[in-house]
Amino acid sequence: MVSTNISGVYSSVFILEGIPDLESSHVWLSIPLFVVYVLAISGNLLMLLLIMMEPRLHNPMYYFLWTLSLTDLVLSSSITLKMLCIFWFNHKEIPLLSCLVQMFFIHCFTSLESGVLLAMAFDRYMAICNPLQYVSALTNTLIGKIVMALVIRGTIIVTPCPWMASRLPYCHSHHIPHSYCDHMAVVKLACTDTTINSAYGLTVVLIVIVFDVSCIAVSYVFILRAVLRLSSKNAKNKAFETCTSHICIILMFYTLGLFSFLTHRIGHIAPYIHVILSNLYLLIPPTLNPVIYRVKNKEIRSAALHLLQVRIL
């Protein structure tokens, strides 16, 4: 193993253990992992293609959905490719720099995904509560600025995590009991006080999750109040239908995130349970997001059928 003394780090290589205590089952676990990854990649690529090629989908709601699909592609690839190398080829080594880059991408795009869900809640609020101003207010320029602001937010608040982790001395074990370079999983290996790192990581989670969830909740309070005021039953049903897909995705993303967060903070939980939940948190939403929208959204289904007919002809 290569050793170095740069920035207080006494090893330039870490060892990812995959799923602790289940190493003998890695080959079998790789099968559902590979299937889930293929579904996530194909589903989100199809969503990107549909939105780009179908003029009827060129509106703010689907621009945000396009951003969500692109985020899911990066997020799922950031962890799955290395996991498959571990499960298939027992290639567990990961250079320090690669580990820090993976850490940045995972946490930055998790923050971006949460932000996009917030932007989509704002989009539904404008569409239902201010329909006359919807098109004029949510211009392509504003959408671009919102997405750019979310990217900048994620970059600014996440960058200190890998930077501070790179300054720690890892002079004992270099085996990360995880399948990817999670911030706290890496920091816990340091042979020094990591209170600042832990506090900052917790602060980032609270800033992103609490702020985004609170704003989403407020948006849907106003949406629900506006829908209940509608006199037409058909109008109410249509309004609820436009929100159903988004609500399903929100509940899935934040529920899995909550379970992952709690198992990380509860010390007596078996390590493999925490790692499995962390993987599900980052893999299940990217896989099911396109499925939920294709099932729940008539315009997406219509666009998919139209694209299929064009291909056949």
Rank of each mutant, 00 (worst) to 15 (best):
Q133P: 00
A185P: 00
W163F: 15
S214N: 01
G154W: 06
Y200V: 03
W163V: 15
S173H: 05
C161L: 15
V151M: 10
I216F: 02
Q133W: 06
A217H: 03
L142W: 11
D123G: 01
L112T: 06
D193F: 01
C171I: 05
N197G: 11
L150M: 11
W163L: 15
P162G: 08
T192P: 01
T159N: 04
T110Q: 12
V213F: 11
L100I: 01
R153Q: 09
C215A: 12
R167D: 03
I128E: 07
H175P: 00
I196D: 00
I152R: 06
F109E: 03
I128W: 10
D193T: 06
S111A: 15
S214W: 05
V187F: 05
T155D: 00
H175W: 02
I156Y: 08
S111G: 10
H178F: 12
M148T: 12
C161Q: 14
L142Y: 13
V116H: 02
C191T: 14
V101H: 01
I209L: 13
H174G: 08
Y125R: 12
H178I: 05
A119F: 08
K188R: 14
C215P: 00
M126Y: 11
T203I: 05
I216C: 08
Y180T: 01
V158Y: 02
Q133M: 12
A199P: 00
S198G: 09
A217Q: 07
H175E: 00
S219A: 15
M126A: 13
I106R: 09
T141K: 14
C171T: 06
K188L: 11
G144Y: 14
V221T: 10
L189N: 06
I209K: 14
Y200T: 04
S198K: 14
F105H: 02
C181Y: 10
L138P: 04
Y220N: 02
G154E: 07
K188G: 00
N197K: 13
T195G: 10
D123R: 04
V187H: 07
G115P: 06
D123W: 01
P177W: 12
T141G: 13
C191S: 13
A199Y: 09
H172M: 08
M126E: 13
A190N: 02
R153C: 06
N130R: 15
L168T: 08
A149S: 15
V158C: 03
V210D: 09
A121W: 02
L100H: 03
D193I: 04
V135G: 05
V151L: 14
L97R: 05
A121P: 03
I196R: 11
A199C: 09
